[in-house]
């Protein structure tokens, strides 16, 4: 069985992933990062800057960061981020004032709108559909971890 598995895997090697050297070098110079979300030409991630975690957005084709006015707050700690393919929307799970909340940030209006869990629950991770019209949310609710699908206008 192990031999079969190895053959299955090794039979599909071929050309491998090519590191995007310039961008990777630039990211490496900027401290620690995690929680990547790649969609269209956009990479969203959580980066640690001077001891604080913040959401950042990178234009992969231009290889440069894009400002996110209205999203990062000094009283909020982001836990998870996801970006739509056109880069206009980001779904962020963050801790703020002792609570964990899900917000949808619209770059066009530079504002973040909280999204309530119905029934009540604690969001833990969120993934935005590439077209930005739906969010899949991992929610802790009554001792159970569930997935909610939430349509967004």
């Amino acid at each position: 069985m192990a031999a079969g598995l190895a053959a299955l895997l090794s039979g599909c090697l071929g050309p491998g992933p090519m590191p995007m050297q310039g961008l990777n070098r630039s990211l490496a110079e900027q401290g620690s990062q995690g929680e990547p979300s790649l969609s269209g030409r956009w990479l969203a991630l959580i980066a640690n800057r001077q001891g604080r975690d913040r959401v950042e957005l990178v234009d992969v084709e231009r290889q440069r960061p894009v400002p996110l006015p209205g999203l990062n707050r000094p009283d909020a700690l982001p836990l998870s981020v996801s970006v739509s393919a056109d880069g206009s929307r980001l779904a962020v799970v963050r801790q703020r004032e002792g609570r964990t909340e899900l917000v949808l940030h619209r770059r066009t209006v530079m504002s973040s709108e909280p999204i309530r869990m119905e029934p009540e629950g604690v969001p833990r991770r969120a993934t935005l559909r590439a077209d930005g019209r739906e969010i899949a949310v991992e929610v802790s609710r009554g001792g159970l971890v569930q997935v909610d699908l939430i349509a967004v206008p």
């Binding site: 992933p17 590191p19 995007m20 990211l27 995690g34 929680e35 990547p36 979300s37 990479l43 393919a85």
Partner: peptide
């Protein structure tokens, strides 16, 4: 962690190397 671009052309991974977590991108179009 990883994230595949919807068109399948790129992949982002978060990985720890030398004690530090970092995000790297790879081109899968080949």
């Amino acid at each position: 962690r990883l994230s595949l671009a919807p068109d399948g052309r790129r992949l982002a991974v978060a990985a720890v190397a030398q004690g530090r977590s970092q995000v790297r991108l790879f081109d899968l179009s080949g």
